[in-house]
Design a protein around this nucleic acid. Structure first.
Lengths: 216, 216, 216, 216
DNA sequence: AATGAATGAGGCTTCATTCAT
DNA sequence: CATGAATGAAGCCTCATTCAT
């Protein structure tokens, strides 16, 4: 006899899969119920409406991200290690939860205007990780001032997009080989390269351009 | 007397708006027709099915992007100017076509697996712009080797995400002020900052980290 | 509490009526649902698509025909009794199921090219009845050789057509009375007359014409 | 410059084909116009509504049948020749106008309740051919009394049904070969066999059954 | 006479949600 | 708790017909 918690877990798993593949409007409650091995009426008994189900999926997902990032970036890391930990943890998450980047992209597309407050709280935990790295880096004189929100979105957005671009890159394959491109750069390597590039780009002693005003 | 092409333009405008706001599944053909000021049957007369309509929207949108980028990055630009031109043009586009980043994010989320070949061709034109900058930069000894696909996705993905994050950033406002953050960094400034950061990060004479293997 | 099978029966009844009166394309799912006293979505829950519904109607109808004919033609009947039993049973069926001859005529008109295999199986059972009569008659030396398929279609086709001609005959009424015709010959009598005529026409000792080559 | 008459002929041809294949409700005005090489609005200019178009098709078709039958059954034919001429002419017509039997079957299925008066007149001409044969045969003492309407429907209905059964017979092919059946009996031979069988069956000196009351 | 472009009405089907058992 | 059976509200699409040119 599956406990209620187990059933709810199966429902969330199924919903994550379905929402990730079809988006909120495209997802069908029938399909979620079938995937979860639950009767449709049972699903409503457990979760309520389609919207509440979606919110539960978001909440669980973002909670997982926040937890993983906090664990991956130790309090005493220097900026380079911090960036690498952060992007590495994201790459790992995207590998283990393939629906995560898809759902993140959808949420971004919809502007997050409808995101429930509970999910926003997880968002703040996630952002705090980047914020801490930047703060410590600047305090230690290692990083030039930069807008944290922007840096954070650069890191996360790039990895989301790169992770999602896999099928597209595959369709590029033929043309790519002619140009000597490696389209199959694994996500983990891309994450490391990104961390490195950003760390260089934000370093105090990087090649100076004209001092840019887009700094805090 | 609205010529057929005018009507089709109105339909594409309306469809772009509706798809951008609701996604493919969430968009309603009725709403598009109403918005375009045409009868629903008339819409089908002009475009065919909902799917073909979506494809036409994608095609027009990506064509606009490709054209704008090609115009914005002159053939003789150095890397720094090239990156700035590219991100600036994107920022400009995202400002004038607010549905563009949304639809790009949705396409990313869906993995682009269903993108029609015609749209892929525009994609290739878009990517070619980044590719050219990197090639020329490397030939001129200004840039260290980097995976072009990844760099391209970093530039585009970051701007898409930042552009879309506007409503979310607004919801962060209260918390942000306490932390001394500027959440309202305009897209154009973010674009310039990004171009600068990437140019620095890819410069030959940037602070060296351990040589990373994720290079071509 | 209407069991599911009862509802399905009501749906099939309603569909038979509607398809019989309007043909497949002319029939409206709305009308069938209304007639059956079920919600339109409920109809889809039970049957699937309009096409599946039509197939189910065909299957039930032809099954009823096959069963009735098999019961009506005993194994030890002589040809004359056999023909009479067969045409009598058909006349009875056409009386009780007025939509049957209409649907048969439609299926004939459409060439049966789209008839599902399950319905074809019932068709074979129906044809087997005629086949058996002819076989036994020939073995017993009572019938001259004849092409069974053709004989079968003569019997069935004639009764279908006669049964359907009722309204037309009615419109002929005025002209007919002037000619001393009985247009209202009941179907059962027509069936008996047909059986008699065919039995005579196929008898071994019937007035010989030139031996015709259209025989097996 | 196609004269109006020529265009109308093309339209009727196209309509015959479309109505014959899809039935009245299933036929699409678009398809008819396209097949006829006429603009849809032009079709309406020439013919009026879909219903009028259908009536025109019926009228032309039945007129052709009436003419052919009258020509095929000379005034001084004996019954056997008369039946053979009639069925032969029908077989010929069904061969040349494949849509004819289909449309006849559909009209039968719909009960002819909606057939326009003009088409009814052609119907009467057609029926008159059978009537004349029977009358002369009885007057000459060659035929036993029989209900003319019924005999007529036997002849016509059987040939319609046999002609239409071709695709069905083809699907029977495999099973048929095992039973030694000839399913491909050409229509002309079937017509001759039918005429022979009916002539025998109605002959005065045919094997007597009990005198049947289903006679005029 | 011909044509491209409408358009109102309606047809088939789906879907989130609820109810009775 | 679980399930099969509803159901109202839409959603996509089609079609006969007309209009302006």
């Amino acid at each position: 006899m599956d406990s209620s918690v187990v059933v709810l877990g199966r429902i969330l798993d199924a919903a994550t899969e379905e929402f990730g593949h079809k988006g909120f409007s495209g997802a069908k409650v029938d399909a979620i119920a079938r995937r979860a091995g639950v009767n449709k009426a049972g699903l409503y008994y457990h979760v309520g409406t389609k919207e509440k189900l979606y919110e539960a999926v978001l909440l669980r997902l973002f909670g997982q991200v926040a937890g993983a990032l906090e664990r991956a970036v130790p309090a005493d890391a220097d900026p380079r290690q911090g960036f690498a930990g952060l992007t590495g943890a994201l790459a790992d998450l995207f590998g283990r939860l393939p629906m995560l980047p898809r759902i993140m992209a959808m949420e971004m597309a919809s502007g997050g205007a409808t995101m429930p407050e509970a999910a926003m709280a997880e968002f703040r935990r996630i952002f705090a990780v980047t914020l801490t790295i930047l703060e410590r880096g600047r305090t230690a004189g290692l990083l030039r001032p930069a807008e944290p929100v922007f840096v954070h979105l650069t890191l996360v957005g790039t990895l989301v997009v790169y992770s999602l671009s896999k099928p597209l890159r595959r369709r590029f394959a033929a043309a790519a080989r002619d140009l000597g491109l490696r389209l199959d750069l694994p996500l983990a390597e891309a994450a490391a390269f990104l961390a490195d590039t950003i760390a260089r780009g934000l370093s105090v002693d990087a090649t100076p351009g004209e001092e840019h005003h887009a700094t805090s």
